[in-house]
Design a protein around this nucleic acid. Structure first.
Lengths: 216, 216
DNA sequence: TGTACATCAGTGAACGCGCGTTCACTGATGTAC
DNA sequence: TGTACATCAGTGAACGCGCGTTCACTGATGTAC
């Protein structure tokens, strides 16, 4: 239970908010969802959280610091989501790999604000090194999955895992950015983004020489 | 010669600017390059162009209209660039196809502001239908190139051209967004984005069953 | 070729607005004894 | 168990700033005759 850290029912309890950090991040995500990654202000987030414009300064140095916290949390959730989709490569790496791809797109689709925070916030890694770390952790899930796929191949035909992971990432990110986003800039295409990515990955795996189960 | 439409040497000629539209677009690109796709204001663009803050209203309804004009022009230049790289598929489709991929990345790299304007401006296609048209034209270059590749295959093994073009586009866009951008959010990788994309496309083509020349 | 005039593309002053940020403050909470 | 006090997390008023936008205006340009 988390009663100790949340204002009950989302209402203010009194003079102290009780969980302003959380409320500010929530507000930021709502505003990002509504107006894009740079479409919110510190003052607006405060207003949405129901506090005075000076209150956020108790928790964040400035808008970027709040944004970075949102992005970091998004990366952590993203990592968990991909990890669960991979599920240790069960029942077999091929099925699990396809599941990861679908989970990637589902995240971009269902959490466009968090996806934006991760990849379009414009924050520099130099200023927020924890972002870099969190991003790498999420990428590692993808890399581990690729490693498992590569391990099914004969030793003398294995491609570099890093290269393969970057290829898959770019394909997934490109598909998500161009076709799976919820915003108005999404391009309409004659198939679902999920099917499109699925097909791309299958063709790519064929090209690598990964032999997949006969089921397809 | 274009003396009639440009202030000589970039200086104001007198009371009339001479080519304010152009100057505003240039200013917008510079500001996008410096501060991101949403990092400039109408007033700032006016200042950069050396005119009063009211002057831009003679040419654009608002900031978004200027942004849309920048993006439209960027798409047109992008289309031309890809078209020239393709060069009618000479000397052979495979070499030309690789050239298109490299041209794609080179554009994202050398013109990050224009690339941002095209893909991260946040403008809605509904509000600016000419953007949709311009974007489709650029995409058509890619699609035609894919069609030429597909045409080299035996008829009974040809994949859908649209699918293939979307795959290539997503791969190129993902690679450009994640690894080839000039901004501070670029991820460092142990190879050039060009080589990464090249490899991805070759593997993908192998997967499709496109037989390439023995040269590689 | 001159001239009168319409049109165009700029000026600059003004306005209301929301933002970022600071400040002295105050209500609530936790803890030492 | 009470109480005094330190600390924490808020308030709200204030400020300067730049933006978007409007307005009556004016200098420059093009053209009809």
């Amino acid at each position: 239970m988390t009663w100790d850290h949340e204002p009950p029912g989302g209402h203010r309890r009194g003079y102290h908010h009780g969980n302003l950090r959380e409320a500010l991040m929530k507000a930021a995500l709502d505003l990002i969802a509504a107006k894009g990654p740079s479409g919110f202000t510190f003052a607006e987030a405060a207003r949405a959280a129901g506090v005075s414009p000076a209150a956020p300064y108790r928790h964040y140095r400035d808008r970027d610091a709040l944004m970075a916290d949102v992005a970091r949390r998004a990366f952590e959730l993203f990592e968990t989501t991909l990890e669960q989709a991979w599920a240790g490569g069960t029942p077999d790496p091929f099925k699990a790999f396809e599941r990861v791809g679908r989970a990637y797109l589902a995240f971009a689709r269902q959490e466009p604000a968090q996806y934006s925070a991760m990849f379009e916030s414009g924050l520099s890694f130099a200023a927020f090194p924890e972002l870099h770390v969190a991003g790498d952790r999420a990428f590692d899930v993808l890399k581990d999955a690729c490693a498992a796929m590569v391990a099914t191949m004969p030793e003398d035909k294995r491609p570099p895992v890093m290269m393969m992971a970057l290829h898959i990432w770019a394909q997934a990110h490109g598909t998500a950015s161009l076709f799976a986003r919820g915003d108005e800039a999404r391009r309409p295409i004659p198939m679902t983004p999920e099917d499109l990515l699925d097909a791309a990955v299958l063709i790519y795996l064929d090209g690598l020489g990964v032999r997949r189960a006969k089921s397809v």
